[in-house]
Simulated scan of single mutants.
Amino acid sequence: MCGRFTITLPNDAMGQHFDARVANTVPYAPNYNVCPTNQVHVVKSGETGRQLVAMRWGFLPRWYETENGGPLLINARSETIANKRAFGEACRQRRCILVATGFYEWTKTAEGKRLPWYIQRRDGAPIAFAGVWQDWGPVETRQSTCAIVTTPANRTLSQIHHRMPLILEPENWALWLGELGKGAAPLMRPGAEDILQFHRVPVAVNSNRASGPELIEPLPVQAE
């Protein structure tokens, strides 16, 4: 599961990191509280090479008559994505990378209090979430939408959640984006144990209206 994340790199730096041309519609960064239905930074590949573009986080299948015409599809499970009506075609033909610098997960106390954790790469590099995308709506109002592919959590992340985003290493970007043809199925596995680290952060991030770098500041586990 991935329901909230951060993006703190400047747009130009994102483009350089992923060797992608930056569209003039990409959203403002930094954003320390990226929420479902927000516009997010997405790398996709086409005839003219890689592009960094804006997409709605919340995949809209073609048969949805409105944006609220069905469940909000922000994640797609790696185990079933190829056979799901909503995602199957996109998994084969429209794979993408969502750019992040970190993401949040929550644990619960015995009393039911939600405690947020911030997760990032140990090496400080941007995180490449595997994703799928779909254009939706009539031509005059068409929008691109996307979802993050998830896998079972590795041992590291299973301490706080049973699912994790599918994280792609640089050597696998081209294969996932379809630049090397088919054969991306072997990439659908949990990330290596040593690539991520996490720490507790203030409960302010529990609100989707919260913002600012203080949301990712480390908080002692005993606090609050």
Results as ranks from 00 to 15, higher is better:
Pro186His: 00
Ile195Arg: 08
Pro170His: 10
Arg50Cys: 05
Gly124Ile: 08
Pro152Leu: 11
Arg163Phe: 13
Thr150Asp: 15
Glu105Cys: 13
Leu180Pro: 13
Met55Leu: 12
Ala54Thr: 08
Val42Met: 09
Ala184His: 09
Pro152Ser: 10
Gly102Asp: 15
Gly46Arg: 07
Ile7Tyr: 01
Ala20Ile: 12
Val22Glu: 03
Gly69Asp: 12
Ala130Trp: 15
Ala100Asp: 03
Pro30Met: 00
Arg121Pro: 03
Met188Gln: 07
Arg95Glu: 14
Leu196Gln: 14
Gly137Arg: 09
Thr48Tyr: 15
Glu111Asn: 07
Arg121Ala: 00
Thr141Asn: 12
Gly124Tyr: 11
Cys2Met: 11
Tyr28Gln: 13
Ala20His: 14
Met164Leu: 09
Asn172Lys: 03
Gln197Ala: 08
Arg21Asn: 09
Glu179His: 01
Ala76Ser: 06
Gln39Gly: 09
Asn11Gly: 11
Ala174Cys: 10
Tyr118Asn: 01
Tyr118Gly: 00
Asn154Met: 05
Gly70His: 04
Glu105Lys: 03
Asn206Tyr: 05
Ala86Asn: 07
Ala54Leu: 02
Trp106Asn: 02
Gln134Trp: 11
Met1Thr: 00
Ser45Met: 10
Phe87Lys: 06
Gly3Arg: 10
Glu111Phe: 07
Trp136Leu: 03
Leu219Thr: 01
Gln134Phe: 12
Ala100Trp: 02
Ile127Glu: 08
Pro218Asn: 02
Gly88Thr: 06
Pro71Cys: 12
Ile148Gly: 13
Gln93Tyr: 15
Gly46Ala: 01
Ala210Lys: 08
Gly58Phe: 09
Val42Tyr: 12
Glu193Ile: 13
Ala223Asp: 04
Asn38Val: 08
Thr66Pro: 12
Ala20Tyr: 13
Leu98Val: 15
Pro220Ser: 03
Asp123Ile: 13
